[in-house]
Design a protein around this nucleic acid. Structure first.
Lengths: 204, 204
DNA sequence: CCTGAAGTTGACGCATGCGTCATTTTTGCG
DNA sequence: CGCAAAAATGACGCATGCGTCAACTTCAGG
């Protein structure tokens, strides 16, 4: 029973390190969501963890790398889930609907992360010039291009189309999730209708 | 010839005040666009004007009111222009196309303002909870509702539809304006196709 | 040209943040 | 148990920002 789960229970040393790192990341999420990345100081973050100033620097070299880690995590997760959801799509309509649904379910399941992204959208874009909010405009674009190649879609400017789909998705998500109660299905349906109809029209 | 233009040449006193205020606003636009509102200090702004620290407080009480002024100006201008453009619309398609075109021409004519908005999108949303980037999602929404009332559009969730149109417009604008050279017409056409097609489909 | 009000200036006291590093605490191991 | 390596601590020196305010400059009006 000693060598059980390969990566688990690796001694108190490792456990504390992992816990501290996690605490810093968690605190950073809160702070960045509350007052915004630009206005936040490293001390705002560590203060919330109960750790000492110096400890922060054992884990991250600066504020930016902290944000980067948080965003990379989120972007990876979002991309994986949207991709997976699209896999089984059987039609254009299904493809669009599944993508939006997966994205909204992802956003909705962690309100703090949602607020973090919403709040720092501009900063994120400038700092990393791509990941943006959509976490995958490029992937969507590639999918669109594949669909054109397969004759499923009419030829068009896929960069702008992907941007339109992501932009509409994000903005609709913000409005939809701000409602009480919110209705993911309705939002997915609206967006699906728009883009399926729109894409068809572009081909005519 | 002495009392010529009603509001002009009102003495050196007034002229200096106007110039100082303008200089502060101009500097603030630069700074907010460059490093973001959150990270910017009042001193970053006044330093760039050559004025003294204290002078800032003769014109604005704090950083936020400065941003507010800048954004109110931009939002007013954008709204007026989009509204005006839509006035003469003769069809749904025309309505959508004119709106987007006016918006893009507005954005394109002042790259610094564009960068300011892009960079601080998240902050703006949180700070003023509405004006957002779109500067007029609500107005668009009202127009959509009028169109439904007039039987031009099928009944649907106008809040989400307006959000989708604004979100797509903003995101497409960012991508389109980032190109060299950029093509406003193509972007307008794409968006018009999407939403006209989408709106028609929602009615079927 | 004089004068008083309007406006500008920048140093001041205070607060906060930065990254470092000598010291102390904790942990793994023989 | 005892000790060396690893990690946490927090005070330190420095930098920067805040809003104020007494002294100074500029302008309008007589």
């Amino acid at each position: 029973m000693s060598d059980a789960g390969a990566t688990v229970a690796a001694g108190k040393r490792e456990a504390t390190k992992a816990a501290n790192r996690a605490a810093i990341v968690a605190a950073a999420r809160e702070v960045f969501a509350e007052i915004g990345y630009g206005a936040a100081s490293i001390r705002d973050v560590i203060r919330r963890t109960g750790l000492a100033t110096g400890t922060f620097y054992n884990y991250f070299p600066d504020k930016e790398s902290l944000l980067r880690e948080i965003l990379d995590d989120a972007a990876d997760q979002a991309r994986v889930r949207v991709r997976a959801a699209r896999q089984g799509a059987t039609s254009l309509e299904d493809f669009v609907a599944r993508g939006y649904r997966a994205y909204y379910e992802f956003l909705a399941e962690d309100p703090e992360r949602f607020e973090l992204l919403r709040r720092n959208a501009g900063t994120i874009r400038v700092l990393f010039d791509e990941p943006a909010l959509g976490a995958g405009t490029d992937e969507l674009r590639r999918d669109l291009q594949d669909a054109i190649g397969a004759g499923v879609l009419p030829d068009h400017d896929t960069e702008l189309m992907a941007a339109a789909m992501v932009g509409a998705g994000v903005e609709v998500g913000i409005h939809m999730l701000g409602r009480e109660p919110y209705d993911v299905d309705a939002a997915v349906q609206l967006l699906t209708g728009i883009f399926v109809g729109g894409l068809q029209r572009l081909g005519s």
